[in-house]
Simulated scan of single mutants.
Amino acid sequence: MKILMTGGGTGGHIYPALAFVNHVKTLAPDTEFMYVGTENGLESNIVPQYNIPFKTIKIQGFRRSLSPQNFKTVYLFLSSIGKAKKILKEFQPDVVIGTGGYVSGSVVYAAKQLNIPTIVHEQNSIPGMTNKFLSKYATKVAICFPDVAQYFPKDKVVLTGNPRAQEVVSVEKTDILKEYGLNPEKKTVVIFGGSRGALKINQAFVEALPFFEERDYQVLYASGERYYKELQEKLKLSEKKLTNISIQPYIDKMAEVLAAADLMVGRAGATSIAEFTALGLPAILIPSPYVTNDHQTKNAQSLVKSGAVEMIPDQELTGSKLVAEIDTILLDELRCQSMAEASKKEGIPDAADRLYKVVKEIT
C-alpha cells in the first residue's frame, strides 16, 4: 500500500501524521509513504529526520482582514493544486491523509479530483478553516473530540483519536526524573508552556517559586529556550540550590517524563491532550488565548466536563492561583485518583489502529 501524508504549519499537524507513519510501519513494513509539506514550514525541518520521502509545494494562508495578499493566496492555491496533482500522479498513493494546515488543502483537494480516497484528520474540538473546507470533498473525516463532529458531514465522521496517543501509551514509568535532579519516588508536577514556552506561565511560575520550595511535592518546570536565560538571571539560579524544583529550558523526552509524573500543567494543545489522557494523567490546563477560534479553550472545556482536568484562563493566571490549584489536586489523594481515572477514560490509546482501520476500509 502507498499512503501520502500532508499537513504542516504547526507541530500539532505534523506529529500526529508522523506517529501514524511509525505505527503503520510496525504493522505493515512494506507500506510506502510520502509526505507533502511546504519549504518554509516546520515540517521541512522535522519530516526529513524520519527518513520519509518529502516533497514541497508553495502556498500561504488567507489573511482574516481584507488584504491584497489574499489575491496572491488564491493564485498560489490554484497553482499548488497543479503541483500536487503532479506529485500524486508520480507517487500513485492508495490514500491521502491530511492532518491540517494550508498545504493539506491543496493536496487533499487535488486527490479528490484524481478520484483518490482521502481522509481529513482534525485534532481539535473546533475545526481549522482548511479541514472545514476539505470535509466537503474528503472520503472520511477522522476526529479526536466528539464535540467537533457537529461541524462536519455526519456520514463521514469517524472518532479515531490522535495517533500520538498510541505512541505514548506504551511508555513505561522509569527513573527519568533523576536526570533532572529530582526524586522518582516523590509526587511530581510537570509545568510547561509548549516547546517555546509561554510568558504568562513563566511569570506565574516566578511568583509561585517561594511557595513551591515549601511544598512536599516537587516541580519540574520547562521555561522554553527564549525565557531560560532571563529566568536564570532573575532567580539567580547559579547562586542557590533548589532542592525540590528543577528548571529546564526544554524537556526532550516529554512522554517519558509525563509517564513518571503525577500532574501536568500546561497549554491545551491537541498533542499534549493526546499524551496525558493516554497516560491517564490529571492536568491543569491554561489555554493559549492566541490560537485560531480560541480552540484550546474548547479543547480544555470538553475535559473539564468529564472531571479529567481543571482549567485556569490565561488572563486569570497568577502564582498564588497556580499553587492553590496544584495543592487541591496533589495534596488530595482521592481527587488525584479520580481525575486520573477520568483522564484515562478520555484517552484513545488505540488511535493509530483506528485510523489505519479507516484507511483499509476506504482503499
Score class of each variant (00 low, 15 high):
Q248H: 10
E39I: 01
K357I: 11
N40R: 13
K136R: 14
E239F: 11
D252G: 09
A255R: 03
G128L: 04
L279S: 07
P93C: 03
Q218H: 04
S135E: 06
S238N: 14
H13I: 04
Q69Y: 11
F212C: 05
F211A: 13
P117D: 07
A259L: 02
G181D: 02
I348D: 09
P29E: 10
L237G: 03
Y228H: 15
K89I: 11
M34L: 14
Y227G: 00
K236C: 02
K154V: 07
L209P: 00
P127T: 09
V359K: 10
Y221E: 01
T118V: 09
A84I: 06
P287W: 01
E167W: 07
T243G: 01
L355A: 03
A142H: 08
L331K: 15
V219Y: 06
S238I: 06
S80Y: 03
V359M: 14
E333H: 15
Q60C: 11
E275Y: 11
V265D: 00
A138G: 11
V206G: 00
Q60G: 02
A300L: 08
D327C: 00
H121G: 01
T318G: 05
T160I: 03
P153S: 05
I251P: 10
K321W: 00
A19R: 00
E316G: 02
F212T: 03
A324I: 06
D353V: 10
D350V: 13
I286C: 05
D353H: 12
V95N: 06
D155C: 02
T277A: 07
E239W: 08
K2C: 04
P249Q: 06
L285E: 05
N162T: 11
S338W: 07
E346M: 14
L317H: 06
E310G: 05
E256I: 07
T130E: 00
S170C: 09
E32A: 13
N183S: 13
G101S: 06
R226E: 15
P16M: 11
S44K: 14
K321V: 12
D262C: 08
S343Q: 09
P349L: 01
V74R: 00
R63Q: 13
M339T: 10
E333Q: 15
A261S: 15
F91T: 00
T297H: 12
N244Q: 12
L177V: 05
T160S: 08
P68M: 09
V304E: 15
K173I: 10
N162I: 10
D94L: 04
L88Y: 11
K186A: 13
Q248S: 13
A142P: 06
Y75M: 13
V309L: 09
I57Y: 07
T31E: 02
K305R: 13
S125M: 04
R354I: 00
Y228I: 03
V21M: 08
K58S: 13
T188N: 04
R196D: 10
R64G: 12
K86R: 14
S302C: 12
G161F: 09
F192L: 15
E346G: 14
K186Q: 14
K132H: 12
L331H: 11
K240D: 03
A270Y: 04
A28N: 15
G12V: 07
T318H: 08
K253D: 14
P16E: 09
K85G: 12
N115G: 10
F152W: 07
G266S: 02
P117Q: 11
K253A: 12
V169P: 08
Q92I: 08
N124C: 09
T38F: 03
S195I: 07
A261Y: 05
D294Y: 07
I362V: 12
